[in-house]
């Protein structure tokens, strides 16, 4: 197990290195410059600024310095935002994003599983049809539409929740719902399909033949087997949350990573863009690792290499 984990961590580092390299060179190729908007600056002033940030050094040197910084956990300083270190910026902003993402994932998957479960138990009933409709709407309509709608109805019209900004937990409710709709729809569709299939398996008949009650059949024998494949869509779901958060945070003016990312892109703040990209990549890789570990936990047939003894 330890060996497996060490190997996984090693792969993670390699992946991060590749992503760092890619984003670094992509930034270099990108047209535009952080100094674009500052037309008032004279040539000398620009030269001073380039000098200060090391942007006039040869690219390999810049690259080496960047990597050197990364190893020490230094993502460089922001070109904007008062020269704050990127690490500090991200640290300040990770809280709201993580909270939103976590809430949305938990709320979305639990509601989705319940919805899918009900649909599979009451197959071809009104419950099933409404669940299908909710799932289709949830997957096909982008989350910013819901965000706008929620904002208009529940904040502007009804005034139940704050329109935007961050502070109390009431502030988190609307963005969480907007973010959760997609994972909920995915989980609902998946759970229904898997449950229907599982409920037709032979071991379910064996359980019935033992006299297990219908509730026992569904919860003890059905759900666990149906949920195993659901783990595979957790990854894409988490990615969807990360990308979704960029738009949602923007709409609700939440001081999170997503909003930061969008702003940084607008002003060509390279170190912050790269830092955020790396953070997203890191988050994604960690999620994949967790999913793989979960798999082994929930499905006895999949034992991780070296995990048996």
């Amino acid at each position: 197990m330890t060996r497996y984990l060490l190997r996984r961590v090693w792969y993670m580092l390699i992946t991060l290195f590749i992503i760092a390299t890619f984003s670094f060179f992509l930034m270099k190729i990108l047209p535009g410059s952080p100094l674009q908007a500052e037309d008032k600056l004279s040539e000398e002033q620009k030269a001073i600024i380039l000098e200060k940030y090391g942007l006039n050094e040869p690219i390999p040197v810049q690259y080496a310095k960047y990597l050197g910084g990364l190893v020490k956990g230094d993502l460089g300083v922001s070109f904007k935002f008062d020269n704050t270190p990127v690490t500090t910026i991200l640290m300040d902003r990770i809280g709201p994003s993580a909270l939103l993402g976590f809430q949305a994932l938990v709320v979305g998957s639990i509601l989705g599983i319940i919805l899918g479960l009900l649909a599979s138990i009451f197959r071809n009933s009104p419950i099933d049809f409404s669940s299908t409709i909710i799932a289709v709407i949830g997957t096909s309509i982008p989350s910013f539409v819901f965000a706008g709608l929620l904002q208009y109805v529940f904040a502007v019209k009804l005034g139940w929740f704050p329109v935007a900004l961050w502070g109390t937990s009431a502030h988190t409710i609307l963005p969480t719902i907007a973010l959760a709709i997609h994972p909920m729809a995915t989980a609902a569709r998946f759970t229904r399909t898997e449950m229907v299939e599982v409920l037709h398996s032979n071991y379910i008949i064996t359980a019935r033949a033992k006299g297990v009650s219908e509730t026992g059949i569904i919860l003890k024998h059905g759900l666990r087997n149906a949920l195993i494949p659901l783990i595979t869509v957790l990854g894409p779901m988490a990615v969807g949350l990360m990308t979704g958060s960029m738009v949602i945070e923007q709409i609700f003016a939440i001081p999170g990573i997503g909003e930061q990312f969008v702003t940084s892109v607008m002003v060509n703040d390279y170190p912050t863009i790269m830092g955020t990209t790396l953070l997203f990549a890191f988050g994604f890789i960690v999620i994949i690792l967790i999913i793989d570990l979960l798999y082994g936990l929930i499905d006895p047939r999949i034992r991780l290499a070296g995990g048996n003894k």
């Binding site: 398996s201 032979n202 071991y203 008949i205 064996t206 359980a207 019935r208 033949a209 033992k210 006299g211 297990v212 009650s213 219908e214 003890k220 024998h221 666990r224 087997n225 195993i228 929930i298 499905d299 006895p300 047939r301």
Partner: peptide
């Protein structure tokens, strides 16, 4: 009723099925 049958199945009458590869719950 199906409730009454749950008390009979597995207790008074049991069954062995054809395919042992699929008749056991893989995660239990």
């Amino acid at each position: 009723t199906s409730k009454e049958m749950q008390k009979i199945r597995g207790k008074d009458i049991s069954m062995v099925f054809q395919d042992p590869m699929s008749s056991l719950n893989p995660t239990m």
